[in-house]
Design a protein around this nucleic acid. Structure first.
Length: 705
RNA sequence: GCGCGAUUAGCUCAGUUGGUAGAGCAACUCAUUUACACUGAGAAGGUCGGGGGUUCAAGUCCCUCAUCGCGCACCA
């Protein structure tokens, strides 16, 4: 027969992938509007199926995790589109405020520059250009994975409509009493010079010296002597017998760092009598726990360490020293000379919060910032999970989510960085306490108003992503596509992103933003280690695809990857699926050599092979529906190789009757359909040799009944 | 400390409502130009981490212990 030349060689992904993607993309069928217009019979009256794709940070290149992310949702999307849904997979990019600024700061550092002292607008413009350039690279790489995304709706978190809508949300929340400005302890990173939310810190175990100091009759423990300059309160538990002779608010004078100091005894139940001596001093400005005690008892709060992490005036001659290093040593020296050290435990292990980007220990600071009151919002989000309006594909994340929603902490949304959406708030007399402010997008009457220079926590805008990308509630797209079906994203975003989308979705629209939540695991190296540049074990999805083909990589990422579990990826595994792709190619060769289009008519549906296939197909459909893609892909592999090729084809080869050829051809075309979502490139390519695509359409829109 | 996972063939992992264990890779035997050597046929390999319980029946449900991983919080 007329076998195309290309089948005489093994499958070569390089000859195929970009051409196929272009063909599919140029057809416009990734856009649901075009889908309806082109195939009205199939799509005009059908339901929508929507997924808003997590915006990859527009600050770097794609890694294997992105490839998994795109593949998982693309399989579902392609499947639903073939089934006849108006599929919208909406792509976007995130300016990723703090993350991008950190990346850009590193770049500046390399160039011997610094963002501090740079003109705000100039810096913004530079980061903007940098981000846009990267965004284009990232977009191209996502396309290589085969993402059937509607690029005509591509959205950037700094698009006008998003910025405006996000600011509106802030104003609405303020009016609803859900946002307040308050002096509260914040997680301060002294390297990056910004406050961070609780989920932007991570924990690090340190071995420090734990000191016990003598203050009058009390022995107090601390691992942070450098904060003790301003301490003038001794706090003990009200039931502690050791200190029962002291009454609440009793005072005494004792020798301390800067000389004789007046101390006040405070009794508070939050003290752990078992720890240390059961007595401690407090430093409310630099400790969240101490802050709560001070607030409760109305105590003075004094700043000891400045925003660069240096000791302030109160430290007298030690002023200006780096608090945590030299400052600490000097204070200890002073106290040693005064004979106030009772004991030193040099092997004290404790865990401190550090900046999740640079691991600089967080220095809590009291600052005026914008906070979101989380309690009622979290309650709404908890309800949605408990009553099943949102469904977690893997239960373990439901538990984590619900735990977090039951224990919400108010959310600091102010960031002292320029890269982001500026907060629509205006101040008079900036710098003083209790300053007057005005909330609104435009400057109020009068000359002395200046806009808050802070920007929103990036998750404040990306939390609104499902609503924002669809144009907020007054747009046509919103009415058509909201609420969406699937939110598929990495397990690391269970706190940062997912609950916030649920909260904003419910708050802004009354409806959950998505029904199914699929949290995928991390892609690890072959040994199960986290991929990192420093370990040198990073597998680039683009490099792998260059060598083995993207279809092979997609399969390697899906098979054996149960929802939510981390997945090791090895080159051997990708190779194995490259063989599978080639197997499909060779089957196509055989079928093309032995059949032709005249055999495309009716087949005997009671044929045993067709009956068997029907069961496999049902099984695969069921597993895709429930996001058990590892099972679906496994069945596909087993069927194609060990049933169709090893049994059906071998049997029919020995008895090439017209009827058998028809069965062979019919089944193979069906295989192309069920294999398409998993391996879009090779299947689409082969499809065009079986049918006239001009007449019958791309494989992309064939019926999956 | 609290929470969440994991522990199944040499390795990496599946195993959906309980019905006496599966895949890929590796290793072994055979076939030798076949649509496909990026191949085919075959065989081998597991007391499902330990212990206890529920059940006619447990890899699967419950309890407990151990080891590993992760997350959250904190003690000054």
């Amino acid at each position: 027969m007329n076998l195309p030349e290309k089948y005489k060689k093994p499958y070569n992904s390089k000859d195929v992938e970009s051409i196929v993607y272009e063909k599919e993309s140029n057809s416009g069928l990734f856009n649901p509007d075009v889908l309806i217009n082109t195939f009205p019979k199939k799509y005009a009256d059908s339901k929508t199926w929507t997924t808003i794709t997590p915006p990859p940070n527009a600050n770097g290149r794609l890694h294997a995790g992105h490839a998994l992310d795109v593949t998982l949702k693309d399989i579902s999307g392609r499947y639903k589109r073939m089934q006849g849904y108006q599929v919208l997979m909406l792509p976007g990019s995130d300016h990723a405020g703090f993350e991008t600024q950190v990346v850009y700061e590193k770049k500046l550092e390399k160039e011997g520059r610094s963002r501090f002292g740079m003109d705000r607008e100039k810096l913004y413009k530079e980061i903007y250009d940098f981000t846009i350039a990267n965004k284009d690279t990232v977009t191209d790489e996502i396309k290589r994975i085969g993402a059937s995304y509607d690029w005509s709706r591509d959205t950037f978190t700094l698009d006008d409509k998003v910025v405006s809508g996000v600011q509106n949300t802030f104003i609405k929340m303020y009016e609803d009493g859900l946002i307040y400005r308050g002096k509260r302890d914040c997680n301060w990173c002294s390297k990056h010079q910004t406050s961070l939310s609780d989920v932007e810190t991570t924990n690090k175990e340190l071995v420090d010296t734990f000191y016990t100091f003598k203050i009058g009759e009390f022995n107090i423990g601390t691992s942070r002597p450098e904060t003790k300059f301003g301490d003038k309160y001794i706090v003990v538990h009200p039931d502690d017998k050791r200190y029962e002779k002291w009454l609440d608010n009793d005072t005494f004078e004792a020798e301390w760092i800067s000389g004789p100091t007046k101390f006040t005894v405070i009794k508070d139940e939050s003290i752990d009598m078992e720890f240390g001596t059961g007595a401690m001093t407090i430093t409310p400005w630099h400790s969240g726990v101490d802050f709560l005690i001070a607030k409760k008892h109305g105590l003075d709060m004094v700043q000891v360490i400045d925003e660069q992490g240096k000791l302030m005036d109160i430290a007298g001659e030690l002023k200006g020293l780096k608090a945590i290093t030299v400052g600490r040593q000097k204070v200890v020296e002073i106290l040693r000379e005064k004979g106030l050290i009772v004991s030193e435990d040099t092997a004290y292990k404790h865990v401190v919060p550090v900046c999740y980007k640079c691991e600089t220990p967080i220095e809590p600071q009291l600052k005026d910032q914008w906070f979101v009151k989380m309690e009622s919002l979290a309650e709404m989000a908890l309800q949605a999970s408990q009553d099943g309006r949102i469904n977690f594909v893997s239960e373990q994340y439901k538990k984590v989510y619900e735990y977090w929603m039951k224990n919400p902490l108010d959310w600091n949304i102010s960031r002292q960085i320029v890269w982001g959406i500026q907060i629509p708030a205006w101040f008079k007399n900036k710098g003083e306490d209790n300053q007057e402010f005005h909330i609104g997008k435009t400057k109020p009457e009068g000359d002395d108003w200046i806009q808050d220079s802070d920007t929103f926590d990036t998750w404040f805008s990306s939390g609104q992503w499902p609503v924002a990308t669809l144009g907020f509630s007054d747009s046509e797209d919103f009415k058509r596509f909201y609420p969406t079906q699937l939110m598929e994203t990495g397990r690391d975003l269970i706190f940062k992103w997912v609950p916030r989308m649920v909260i904003f979705g419910l708050y802004l629209t009354g409806e959950v933003p998505f029904k199914d939540i699929y949290m995928h695991g991390m892609v690890l190296d072959a040994k199960g280690q986290k991929m990192s540049k420093s370990k040198g074990n990073v597998l680039s999805p683009i490099d792998l695809a260059d060598e083995y083909g993207m279809d092979a990589l997609r399969m390697a990422l899906i098979v054996g990857n149960a929802p939510g579990n981390d997945i090791p990826l090895s080159v051997d595994k990708v190779k194995a699926y490259k063989k599978f792709v080639n197997k499909l190619w060779n089957i196509a060769r055989f079928v093309l050599e032995n059949t032709d289009e005249s055999m495309d008519g009716e087949v005997d549906l009671t044929n045993k092979h067709i009956e068997n296939f029907k069961n496999i197909k049902n099984d695969i459909s069921k597993n895709i529906e429930s996001y058990q893609l590892h099972l679906a892909s496994e069945s596909l592999y087993q069927y194609v190789w060990h049933e169709y090729a090893d049994v059906v084809l071998e049997e029919i080869k020995k008895d090439l009757t017209d009827e058998n050829k028809k069965v062979l051809r019919y089944l193979f075309k069906q295989i192309l359909i069920i294999a398409h979502p998993f391996m879009p490139f090779v299947t689409e390519e082969i499809w065009s040799d079986f049918v006239d695509v001009e007449v019958n359409g791309l494989l992309l829109v064939q019926d999956w009944e």
